[in-house]
Simulated assay, not measured.
Amino acid sequence: SFGVYYLNKFLSENKNLKYKKAIGINGLPETIGKFGINEKMFNITLDTLNEENLEKFLINMDIDNSFCKSDKSFDEIRNELQFFKDNYEIIDNHIDFYYVGKNDRIIPGNKLEKYCQNCNLAYKLIECGHYPFLYFKDFKNILEI
């Protein structure tokens, strides 16, 4: 989700960069708001996140035991969320194609699908939650090579 946001930000700041196709997975340039994470829910998550419910948050992201957890401290994780909120602004879309997880509990798939439809963007619904790397085993699958 934030990766797609920051990819859009990077592409908007590097307009001379040549690329064939930018692909987003379970994220969008409007990460918080109408098509993304409800602002109230984002704030509740940020305000109530603690070491005990961080594990539940990861489960909601569909991250399983195969995920290599970061060595970041809880405070670093929370500070990243706070930084994102404090520096968030809606940016233009530079993604050509979106994968949309039907079972995403972070950015609901139906909201991301509506975003793609409203903006006339190509997308594909996939059977996965927010963290899609149990679905995608190789970057070749993402690129559909």
Results as ranks from 00 to 15, higher is better:
residue 145 I to T: 14
residue 46 L to T: 10
residue 25 I to S: 02
residue 133 F to H: 13
residue 45 T to Q: 07
residue 81 L to W: 13
residue 133 F to I: 11
residue 21 K to Q: 01
residue 64 D to H: 15
residue 85 K to V: 01
residue 101 G to M: 04
residue 38 N to W: 06
residue 37 I to A: 06
residue 53 N to D: 01
residue 38 N to T: 05
residue 18 K to H: 02
residue 77 I to V: 10
residue 103 N to R: 15
residue 142 I to K: 08
residue 61 M to G: 05
residue 112 L to D: 03
residue 113 E to D: 08
residue 105 R to S: 07
residue 28 L to G: 00
residue 70 S to G: 09
residue 37 I to N: 08
residue 99 Y to D: 03
residue 39 E to Q: 12
residue 119 C to V: 09
residue 107 I to A: 02
residue 82 Q to N: 07
residue 109 G to V: 05
residue 75 D to L: 07
residue 126 I to S: 13
residue 33 G to D: 01
residue 85 K to M: 08
residue 53 N to S: 02
residue 60 N to A: 06
residue 142 I to H: 13
residue 62 D to E: 06
residue 38 N to K: 06
residue 14 N to T: 03
residue 45 T to Y: 05
residue 21 K to W: 04
residue 135 Y to G: 08
residue 46 L to K: 03
residue 46 L to I: 11
residue 28 L to Q: 05
residue 21 K to C: 05
residue 37 I to D: 11
residue 143 L to P: 01
residue 144 E to P: 12
residue 76 E to A: 00
residue 52 E to T: 12
residue 113 E to W: 04
residue 30 E to Y: 04
residue 14 N to G: 01
residue 104 D to T: 12
residue 6 Y to R: 06
residue 65 N to Y: 14
residue 102 K to I: 13
residue 134 L to K: 15
residue 109 G to C: 12
residue 84 F to Q: 11
residue 9 K to F: 01
residue 25 I to N: 09
residue 3 G to N: 07
residue 117 Q to N: 06
residue 61 M to Y: 08
residue 139 F to A: 13
residue 77 I to C: 05
residue 95 I to P: 13
residue 28 L to V: 05
residue 92 D to T: 09
residue 53 N to Y: 02
residue 136 F to N: 11
residue 23 I to D: 06
residue 22 A to L: 01
residue 122 A to F: 09
